[in-house]
Amino acid sequence: EVYKSGYAFKNKCWFLDWHKQESIDLLESSTNSSELIDLIKQGVPEEYIFENDRKDSNKVVIRGKLPKLKWTDPDLEIHKKSPKTMRDVGVFITWLQDDMVNDITSFRGRNAGGTAMWLACEQGAENVYMMGFDLSVPDKPLSHLYPETTHLPTSAKDNGFDSINWQTQNKKVFRKFPKTNFYWVTKSVEEQLLVDQFSMCKNVTFLTYGDLEVWK
């Protein structure tokens, strides 16, 4: 979706596992590229195939996964249509144009916010402002920027969840770049969850959006 929107042609982006297949016409001497792509599509339901306009491109990125429609444990059937199970389902065939996309080669497989901070620090950022970095705890409704979106589980919205992984990954960034100033911007410091969990991170300061207004 980001690629189709045109954003990646005007702005530098980082995508995970963005492995380019170049000169695809030469990948198999006995099969042309169109037949190769058709072979990849075989057995995949049409509604799970996402492909942009090829134009004259001979570079492509192919990614995706199929939904897990059957579970060996009947008790897990309730997860069949869950956002996590259905997220990014399908075969995504992206024919590349003149874009500004970079593959993420470090801090892989972490949360998006932590990865964004890591990449910014690698490029020499001295001050990082963290906006929209939600945390959560069990049994407390999740305060989320997009509460009605498809990929926000209803259970998380209603009950919250244990965000220990987010906490751990963010702390790793703070420790890796001790000379970088991190400003965690929130609506209210008093209402921000788990502030005490970051008290040992001396390069992290909690601010409010009101504080930023004063700095203008």
Results as ranks from 00 to 15, higher is better:
D196F: 07
N11W: 03
L212S: 09
V185P: 09
W95H: 05
N52E: 04
K10N: 11
K84M: 10
L135N: 10
V185I: 12
Q123W: 02
K59C: 07
P45D: 11
K80R: 15
N111Y: 04
K65Y: 12
I93R: 04
L69D: 15
Q197N: 13
K179D: 14
G64S: 10
T168C: 02
K55H: 15
K187M: 12
F15C: 03
V2G: 15
S155W: 14
S155Q: 12
K171C: 12
M86D: 00
E1P: 01
K59H: 07
I37T: 08
W184E: 08
G210Y: 10
K68F: 11
Q21G: 12
K10G: 01
Q197T: 02
A116M: 11
D73K: 15
Q21C: 06
E213R: 11
A120H: 05
L69F: 10
V60Y: 12
F198A: 04
P45W: 06
K41N: 07
S199C: 01
L135K: 07
S23F: 01
E126Q: 15
N165C: 08
Q21L: 14
E35P: 00
F133Q: 12
W14N: 06
D73W: 08
E22F: 07
L207H: 10
L39H: 13
N165S: 13
L207G: 04
E46G: 04
R54W: 07
F15S: 01
W18N: 04
T72H: 15
C121P: 03
G113A: 12
W71N: 03
N52S: 05
I49G: 09
S57V: 03
D99M: 04
G160T: 04
L193M: 14
N181A: 10
G90M: 03
G109Y: 01
V61T: 06
D56V: 06
V44P: 00
S34Q: 15
K80H: 07
S82H: 12
P153L: 09
V89N: 14
S82Q: 05
Q123F: 02
S33F: 12
L193T: 02
N127W: 00
E122Y: 06
L119V: 08
P147N: 03
R175W: 02
L96R: 13
V2Y: 15
I49W: 10
L207K: 14
I37Y: 11
W118L: 02
K140Q: 11
K59Y: 08
F107V: 00
K81L: 13
H79D: 13
V204F: 07
G109T: 03
M117I: 00
L119E: 06
L152R: 05
T31Q: 13
V2A: 15
I93S: 06
I24C: 13
D211M: 11
L66R: 15
Q192A: 13
D162N: 13
D25G: 09
K179Q: 12
T94F: 03
F174Q: 04
Y146L: 03
V91H: 05
P178A: 07
S155N: 07
P138N: 06
R110W: 01
L27Y: 05
L193F: 09
Y129K: 00
